[in-house]
Design a protein around this nucleic acid. Structure first.
Lengths: 331, 331
DNA sequence: CTGTTAGCGCATTCAA
DNA sequence: TTGAATGCGCTAACAG
């Protein structure tokens, strides 16, 4: 029997007779034969593999997104080739970036999901880097661009949800501990805070904004500074749950009770949030959905033969929702 | 110029003249030539890739270990091929396991790190599954076996540290909320608890042991039951920080103050632990080191030509350490 | 429905 | 130090 016939069988081609197919299958299981996807990739030029450029594994968000990507990929029978970056600014660690990209490309991945958090100082660079690349790419959580496919969480909406909730309870002096300057997600959440306040005709809020670094320690530190500057602050929207935890911690040490003296809302809804003391009101993101969407999106791009055709790009938003717990409830 | 010469250049072979080498390198950068690792793998039979079989990305431990593995791999110029399992019992999800293993093997990975948490009901199966496999393999966090290479966290030691700390402060009625029955790591930590108590001649502790499921919710639930059975309980060693958080939560609702009425010690030292209220005493594991060690270990195995030679197996332990905070401090 | 020929891009072996 | 022949395991295109 020829190798061709075998190839046809393992590729589920219809043009093989039933008995031949069965005979081949029997021998295959007998011999424990395992088709080499390496050879197959070389011959076909495609690998059924997705390249994912991620950002560390120390943060909650990126990790959960990756989990979503992994699950959806395996459902679609795609393997993952993973490369992680430690710096939000790829251009600051060119060596590593080139190593990762090179690895992905030389392995013939069929598409790339760029899951490194967006940052003002990197958007230009990333756009340029991918400009001439012929490979289908989907970007996660960065600013929309007409020429790119982006899948993102609507942090602005989330910020509005959080602040509207606080406003609805009568709070007016509402501050925010934002994420690090320059991070796209941080700026979106902050914009949501600002828009909600403007919508309620609350002015002079800019002095109630302070930068954090995502960590609980930075949240604690930030609130200390904020409180010194504006002791009349009534509520805080923190751009993630860890910082919210830090804010609560600082408030307690400053003799403030949460939520009695200070209302706090976080962002993410990490698993521990319901068990904090007080339990934390927060904005929940469906990170898993984000990953799923990214895979589906790139999967479609991969199927299209003409790379020129649906270059339309565009952004898909995933909307977060508010989860109200104790930390924001005025008595 | 022949392809052979090019091949020699990109493989850093010594037998090329300086000028030829330079000429080739120039042309390479000019053309943006990128060697195909697929073709290289096919020709050489090795891929410079590590296969990692991990366990979800929803848990703290496995994720951090993976981070350590990734970092060390990239330092050693190894790529990662990732496959995730959702069930601790591989034999319960045969389809997925075979899919993952098949994928790794058909891609010619040079070694496999099995990073699925050990479980009594799976140890037999896993051992059998890898018995005849010729590929270098290192196992993470499972029971030592003479024939296998295992890298593991010494949870037993960690448990002893936690309980000795409680004993040193005069507590005697020390309970434990363990991890799910059957999980190797859970049983090790529990064994540490038991050994420490026996070492201090504290008997009758078995009624103070209750099973949790790693989650904060399960910890809360467990402590409620425990407290009902034994209201004289003075301290709790929880097998992870989330459950410890749940215990604190339950205690508070039961009218107990931590640490005044109940001392609590966790395990893991998640980033939020210092910011809990009260801040959480816990056993810190260097998960990054665990990953690093695993990569180093398999790297060495990969280099050995004779697969038979150093079949000695053996286990490498990583020792956790105690971090004392408020939740366990009497007075 | 099945077999033949050719080639994917590289490394190994041997010859020059 | 360089080049030529051969094969890694598979699939595309064509022929039968």
């Amino acid at each position: 029997m020829s190798r061709q016939t075998v190839s046809r069988v393992i590729n589920y081609r219809p043009d093989v007779s039933q008995e031949t197919r069965q005979r081949v299958l029997d021998v295959i299981t007998d011999l424990g034969y395992r088709p080499s996807s390496v050879a197959r990739t070389l011959a076909q030029g495609r690998s059924n593999t997705l390249g994912v450029v991620g950002f560390g594994l120390e943060y909650f968000g990126p990790t959960r997104v990756l989990a979503g990507i992994e699950r959806r990929s395996s459902e679609r029978s795609l393997s993952l080739q993973l490369g992680l970056l430690d710096n939000v600014l790829p251009q600051r660690d060119l060596g590593r970036v080139e190593q990762v990209m090179n690895d992905l490309l030389s392995r013939q991945v069929d598409g790339i999901i760029w899951a490194v958090p967006g940052h003002v100082e990197s958007t230009e660079w990333v756009a340029a880097r991918f400009e001439k690349m012929a490979i289908p790419t989907v970007f996660l959580n960065r600013n929309p661009s007409p020429s790119q496919d982006v899948v993102a969480m609507d942090g602005r909406h989330g910020g509005r949800l959080a602040v509207d909730h606080l406003l609805a309870q009568g709070y007016r002096r509402i501050g925010t501990v934002s994420g690090p300057n320059g991070w796209w997600e941080a700026e979106e959440r902050e914009a949501g805070w600002r828009e909600a306040l403007q919508g309620a005709r609350v002015d002079d809020a800019e002095d109630l904004r302070i930068e954090g670094q995502w960590s609980a320690a930075s949240g604690e530190q930030a609130f200390r500074v904020l409180y010194r500057k504006a002791p009349d602050i009534e509520a805080v929207f923190a751009a993630n749950d860890q910082m919210a935890l830090g804010v609560v911690h600082a408030a307690r040490q400053l003799g403030l009770q949460v939520p009695k003296d200070l209302a706090v809302v976080g962002f993410d809804d990490i698993d521990e949030a319901p068990y904090f003391h007080p339990s934390l009101t927060t904005v929940r993101q469906d990170l898993n959905a984000l990953g799923t969407l990214a895979v589906d999106r790139i999967y479609r791009k991969m199927l299209v033969q003409q790379p020129e055709e649906d270059r339309q790009g565009g952004i898909s938003w995933v909307r977060p929702r508010l989860v109200v717990r104790e930390s924001s409830l005025r008595d």
